[in-house]
Nucleic acid binder design. Sequence first.
DNA 1: TTTATTAGTTCACAATGTAAACCATTTGAT
DNA 2: ATCAAATGGTTTACATTGTGAACTAATAAA
Lengths: 149, 149
Amino acid sequence: MEKIQNIQPIGRILSHTGRSFLQLLNEKLNYLDIERSYYALILIDLGHGELTQTELACQLETDKVSIVRIVDYLAAKGYVKRVKSAVDGRKYCLTLTGKAKKILPGIKKSMEEVTAVAYNGLTELQQTEFISILGIIKDNLSKANNTGS
Amino acid sequence: MEKIQNIQPIGRILSHTGRSFLQLLNEKLNYLDIERSYYALILIDLGHGELTQTELACQLETDKVSIVRIVDYLAAKGYVKRVKSAVDGRKYCLTLTGKAKKILPGIKKSMEEVTAVAYNGLTELQQTEFISILGIIKDNLSKANNTGS
DNA sequence: TTTATTAGTTCACAATGTAAACCATTTGAT
DNA sequence: ATCAAATGGTTTACATTGTGAACTAATAAA
């Protein structure tokens, strides 16, 4: 009789929980003048002025149209600049402005806080186990999606 | 140095994995003339002709506008009918058509298959542990979202 | 030197989330 | 019994997001 639970697609739960996470992060960061693409900022920072949009798309696991929108958004708000690559004229290297570097610590802090909220009541072991299994599931599904056809 | 991984917001991973799941489910069910709201059908079926749109919204954890769209969609495709409640003239009881009942087993089967793909390589124990932790995280976040203000 | 790829942009369309205004019906208070 | 408030559902509107296609400019391959 509890087959019902079993049948409930975990896809829904995963999506919903993920959205919940991002919403809470948004609330914590509502003092900023941006309300999304926080993680993009972190990745661009880690790229040390060498990250291109295609690479960012790869790391964010999204498409290039979305990346253009994200970079446009962050650039309009004064957080990111496109710097034409000297080596390859097609590429743009993404760099953070000083304004962006100033808000990065707060973003990371809020991310850690939200993560802490999410993990509330779980042991370290459970947390690492969860992340590990989540990674496996993610790989299983992305493999299946690519091999699908 | 692997702090980077730690910093990657699990919200993104959860969302992405959930979407992956639903995409794969979609592929498996591409022989149908609907391409979403499968789980709504299952819930309506479980409601035995007594489920209202508000209740469905609650079970799908979404808002009533989305429910109207979902029911419109499923009704237009001939899978669901709105039956005005005899008790309360405001409510509509959702019922499945024969067409819907015919496709339900296939939907459930595909859901189980996709779940099996997702869980590939995991022990039963890991699976139940994962679902259990996921539930806790989901609760933690939804509590925080409601208490947020 | 053509041709094919690649990086990025733009356009277009559908799905989804969210908020607000709105009906009709029912409930509650007086 | 009546009037106000709450509820179930619909509609409109707007922004975000995913997806596909067509396109430019620049590089790589033939």
